[in-house]
């Protein structure tokens, strides 16, 4: 397959349990930040529309 070359094969054999806590932190942090960002944009739109 064409993409077999650039695929980091060793990453698949790496344990997904190794960094689970930082992984969880990254995910939750990203989700919260994204939710906040979307809310801020929505708020901005509404304020601009009414202002």
């Amino acid at each position: 397959m064409a993409d077999a070359r650039d695929a980091p094969r060793e990453s698949l054999s790496q344990s997904p349990y190794r960094h689970w806590l930082t992984g969880l932190g990254t995910e939750v942090g990203t989700f919260l930040a994204f939710g906040l960002f979307v809310s801020a944009v929505a708020a901005l739109i509404v304020v601009l529309l009414q202002g």
């Binding site: 990453s11 790496q14 997904p16 190794r18 992984g23 969880l24 990254t26 939710g35």
Partner: peptide, 21 residues
């Protein structure tokens, strides 16, 4: 937050939890 975690592909969870943030 939990909804977002739930809708995330398990392959992505695996990638991130392997350290590929």
């Amino acid at each position: 937050t939990l909804m977002m975690a739930g809708t995330l592909n398990f392959n992505l969870h695996a990638a991130v939890w392997r350290g590929n943030r």
